[in-house]
């Protein structure tokens, strides 16, 4: 356990990865408020990794961010898998379960990555119905993430109209991925602050922050492999001022994992912005 003089983050957590599981548990250099993990990577996993996760769960609250539910898919929801997710959330006392507003399965084949849903009215109704189905099954609100995308597909409405319509129709909550909004603004030529200003921020339950990679003059790929850049911190500050109160904030880092203290440095910077904005409010846990 951390010693009594170590300052624990109040708002900012970190994505837990097997890659740095051992360093994470054995280091006093990171002290997140919570950890997030993908249920797909842990459902029915035992042995060494389960014991590691048990140690993590003894120290930190666990939030969960799904990869394969594919709420945007034309296919039916996989009820068997959803039941596994439900059991997992209960077993680990997971307080927030989020998923992506995208699809990763189509025509009965998993693709294991996030594809953009057409911004269309029929898709709004279809996806909303599926989100409601998930919420009814799980007995909790689903928190959906605004995903990064590199091209729209068959769009008949704007992205922000699409997201707001789904929030309204599905009566779900929103994961504000600030980096994704920045990436999308850059890739599709819109002002990310104006985008945030148009969103229904009353439904924001959770925030993600991450780095990205600019691969050409007009394209950023959402890699989670670099530190957060200053404009994304600025956008974060803008975004959280729109909220009614504190929500948990996650630092995502999936590649090029640096020293733990570098990750903590990023979390500290986010924590300072949160504390300044939310006036030392604490999260409900």
């Amino acid at each position: 356990m951390s010693g009594p003089f170590i300052f624990m983050n109040q708002h900012v957590g970190i994505g837990y990865r097997k890659d740095f599981g051992s360093a994470f548990l054995n280091s006093e250099e990171v002290h997140p408020a919570f950890v997030e993990l993908a249920p797909e990577n842990w459902i029915d996993v035992g042995g060494y990794w389960k014991r590691q996760l048990q140690k993590v769960a003894e120290r930190y609250p666990i939030y969960s961010h799904g990869l394969s539910l594919s709420v945007g898919s034309p296919d039916p929801i996989d009820r068997g898998f959803l039941k596994q997710v439900k059991d997992f959330l209960e077993e680990w006392n997971v307080q927030i379960y989020s998923e992506h507003l995208s699809y990763s399965k189509c025509d009965n084949a998993h693709l294991y990555d996030l594809l953009p849903i057409p911004f269309r009215e029929d898709a709004v109704k279809h996806v909303s119905e599926r989100i409601r189905e998930v919420q009814d099954f799980l007995g909790r609100k689903l928190v959906i993430e605004i995903v990064s995308y590199y091209t729209p597909v068959a769009a008949e409405m704007t992205e922000v109209e699409f997201i707001n319509a789904i929030l309204q129709e599905a009566d779900c909550e929103l994961l504000f991925d600030i980096n994704n909004i920045y990436v999308n603004g850059f890739n599709h030529g819109y002002d990310p602050k104006a985008f945030i200003d148009q969103l229904d921020t009353s439904r924001v339950r959770y925030i993600h922050m991450a780095g990205h990679e600019k691969v050409s003059d007009d394209l950023i790929i959402d890699t989670h492999g670099q530190p957060i850049i200053d404009p994304v911190y600025d956008l974060f500050e803008h975004a959280i001022k729109k909220l009614n109160g504190p929500v948990p904030v996650l630092l995502e880092r999936d590649f090029n994992i640096p020293e733990m203290k570098e990750l903590q440095h990023e979390m500290d910077r986010l924590e300072a912005i949160c504390t300044q904005t939310w006036d030392h409010a604490t999260l409900e846990r």
Binding site: C106, L111, I117, R120, V153
Partner: peptide
């Protein structure tokens, strides 16, 4: 709710990620 055309666009993108044969899609 999902119209055939919307489903088709989603299928085309998914298929493209699998076979790499660039499809004709709307508004990409």
């Amino acid at each position: 709710h999902l119209k055939d055309e919307t489903h088709e666009q989603q299928s085309l993108l998914a298929k493209y990620t699998r076979d790499g044969i660039e499809p004709e899609m709307i508004g990409v």
